[in-house]
């Protein structure tokens, strides 16, 4: 079976085709089983060296990548910006080139600037995986959200998904919008006017001004974290006000015409964008998202690592 090549890097879902996203999701499927084994490890990436280069704080994503790498038997090194030469003023590219001089195979990069992953990918030989760049994309989060939706509904085509909250600053929202649209889902966003991007309708996205309308419409809500610094920056008047108008509460969900799947990329502000009885409720798949994150990242690593078409031809001989 011939599968579509992913190329050297995974930078975002915007540049992937429907077939490539399908391949990533289908490949993630058998990787779920590995994490259920007594010995959670396969020898696939034995000998590969992967650097997790995190210029921004991250717990879930970094640990998820590290589990994925270790369960594929890769050797991993974590570099955080504090305590490294980055703190001494070294540039992104110099840091990466120095790592490459030590013969690495892949770099997983998180950076505060949009486009940082692409900038790096164009300048080094190693595979680059974007683990979140500024307000641009967070492709593995987008993929794990797609996988969780597909697990639950058995399909993505025609599914109605509303992304709620601070869409303007969210790379998770962007990756979700690209991924969902390519897979045939209907996408809406809902949040305060100050936190929604302009001209988003051009991407085929519906905009709801009231969370009640979103709940009326959606099969699933993907509730984004409200970054507390947005309040200081004047985007919203107060957290309590935000919770009252846009917070997803049990009372609001009880009026929904159908059961709505609840997703959140974490970390949650309980009592702000999501109430505890929703986050821990029967329709929440928030922890399934975390479980799927490891399988999706294993699939990405597996598909990007090693194996060039030229070598394959030679091996057939």
């Amino acid at each position: 079976m011939k599968s579509p090549d992913l190329g050297k890097d995974l930078l975002g879902l915007e540049e992937l085709s429907t077939a490539q996203i399908q391949l990533l999701l289908d490949t993630a499927e058998p990787f779920k089983e590995i994490s259920l084994r007594a010995i959670k490890k396969v020898p696939t990436l034995r000998g590969a060296t992967i650097v997790n280069l995190f210029f921004e704080a991250s717990t879930r994503t970094r640990i998820s990548f590290e589990f994925a790498e270790k369960r594929l038997s890769a050797d991993t090194v974590n570099v955080a910006s504090s305590g490294s030469s980055v703190a001494k003023g070294e540039t992104l590219v110099d840091t990466a080139r120095n790592l490459e001089a030590m013969k690495i195979d892949m770099v997983v990069v998180r950076h505060g600037s949009s486009g940082a992953a692409r900038f790096l990918a164009q300048r080094i030989e190693s595979n680059v995986i974007n683990a979140g760049d500024g307000m641009h994309e967070h492709p593995t989060q987008g993929l794990l959200d797609l996988l969780t939706l597909r697990d639950h509904f058995g399909r993505l085509d025609g599914l109605r998904v509303c992304i709620c909250g601070d869409v303007l600053h969210s790379r998770v929202a962007r990756s979700n919008i690209w991924g969902l649209r390519k897979m045939g889902a209907e996408v809406a966003i809902c949040g305060p006017r100050s936190l929604l991007p302009n001209a988003v309708e051009a991407l085929g996205v519906t905009v709801f001004r009231r969370i009640e309308e979103a709940i009326e419409w959606a099969d699933a809500l993907n509730i984004l974290r409200l970054q507390l610094e947005r309040m200081q920056a004047g985007y919203i008047p107060s957290l309590r006000e935000y919770n009252r108008v846009f917070g997803v509460t049990r009372e609001k969900l009880e009026r929904a015409p159908r059961d709505i799947l609840i997703m959140h990329p974490g970390p949650m502000n309980r009592g702000v964008e999501i109430d505890s009885d929703v986050a821990d409720g029967p329709h929440s798949v928030i922890l399934d998202q975390v479980t799927n994150g490891v399988a999706v990242r294993m699939a990405v690593l597996y598909l990007l690592a090693g194996g060039s078409p030229a070598l394959a031809e030679a091996a057939k001989g």
């Binding site: 490949t27 499927e29 089983e33 598909l303 194996g307």
Partner: peptide, 23 residues
Amino acid sequence: LDITLYRDDLQTVGPRPVVGKTH
């Protein structure tokens, strides 16, 4: 049993073979 992830030629076969289900 799907043995794809245990193959000894994974570094040379690419594009990556499809992984099946292990149960």
